[in-house]
Design a protein around this nucleic acid. Structure first.
Lengths: 209, 209
DNA sequence: TAGATTGTTAATCGATTAACAATC
DNA sequence: TAGATTGTTAATCGATTAACAATC
């Protein structure tokens, strides 16, 4: 395993590879060549071989890649087998939607609990997850630490809640607020989903029509 | 205006610039140097000057950039002043959350209507937007064309709905499903928000702890 | 064996950073 | 004027693509 040299550009492509290979697998494909995969994904065969070569040798010359094996390996690299623990903070419309729809388990996460400040939702259960009072979060996380927190709070509360979560041992923040978060702790990882940024780039690319 | 040479990498940064400059503006800042902005955003001053220089001359030597003017110009480049029309298709939890929370107007879009197949939601109003029956979408879009559609349908329906929307004149698809969409029409623009991909990269970066 | 396809090295391309003359 | 800071050119860095020997 020479995972050290997986660049950010490659890491961003891994989930797409995983997705495509899973589908091929589900359709019963046993092998695939870099050319065929490239055609399906709109990527050059060269790039695919370059990408895959940076974590071992899954191809066979003259044959291609064994789909199942490669798919599973990429899953392992992404940490799907780690079964990490996660909490969701902020059960508004978006938090609620994620609890209801999002396949956390398929991504290797189990949702321990959700938290909110509003008495209107505290105490309810959403898709099997109990919504707890935000005041209980310290006690809860000391008892059952979580690797990652989903941040679906109002933007104005985001940094404060993030700081608190980090002080309680959370190392990864999946940030859905439009805030630009940061932490003095260098090992904390922020992954942002900035809806507005995304829509604005779409707006730009629509051009001046 | 030499907007031709704005590369994709720069375009992806524009919304962040816009966000940061808006905040500076709100705090009453009149000018900012590339160094100061770079420090705030974790970007080199060189890159900022390089980026800004590709759309005109907003800086003044020895002084810096006029915040308000620059902010407004970036807003125009992103098309915030275009007031484009948009429809949302699929009023499940996520679609509902977007209708409720997302500041479409601030991004330069006005939401014409929402569509769903479920009688349970058809006819309701969400945050001022009427939810119509999916069967009415052809007639509706012929009457009131939309530039962009938000795709918050189940993954299995995504490509079919996308094709239909494109045939009705939609040119931009803001895709929240985990599907990889495509269209034979080359001018159609897809902007994906792939939640799973995002969480998986976070998972990867958490490392092997 | 002949054909296909990998893994890897080298070449190209593009994006980021550094440097600096121009000038406010 | 002296100091600050831009816009732009040149240098560096990294990522993508092309080429090809190795080999199944």
């Amino acid at each position: 395993m020479k995972r050290e040299n997986i660049s950010d550009a490659v890491v961003r492509r891994l989930p797409r590879y995983y997705r495509q290979l899973s589908e091929l697998c589900a359709h019963g494909a046993e092998r695939i060549s870099s050319h065929a995969l490239g055609r399906e994904m709109g990527i050059t065969a060269s790039q695919i071989r370059q990408d895959f070569s940076c974590f071992g040798e899954f191809g066979q010359q003259g044959y291609g890649y064994r789909v199942k094996e490669l798919c599973e390996e990429i899953g392992r690299i992404l940490g799907l087998d780690k079964n990490r623990r996660l909490v969701l903070v902020g059960v508004g419309h978006l938090g609620h939607a994620l609890l209801q729809n999002f396949p956390f388990a398929k991504c290797g996460f189990s949702v321990g609990a959700a938290f909110d400040v509003s008495p209107a939702v505290v105490g309810s259960r959403v898709n099997g997850v109990t919504v707890r009072d935000m005041r209980e979060i310290d006690a809860y996380l000391k008892e059952s630490p979580a690797d990652v927190a989903v941040l679906t709070v109002p933007q104005s509360a985001a940094q404060g809640v993030a700081d608190r979560l980090i002080s309680l041992g959370v190392r990864g923040l999946w940030n859905f607020t439009n805030a630009e978060l940061s932490s003095p702790e260098p090992e904390v990882i922020f992954e942002d989903i900035h809806f507005s940024d995304s829509l604005l780039t779409l707006s730009y690319r629509l051009g001046n029509a």
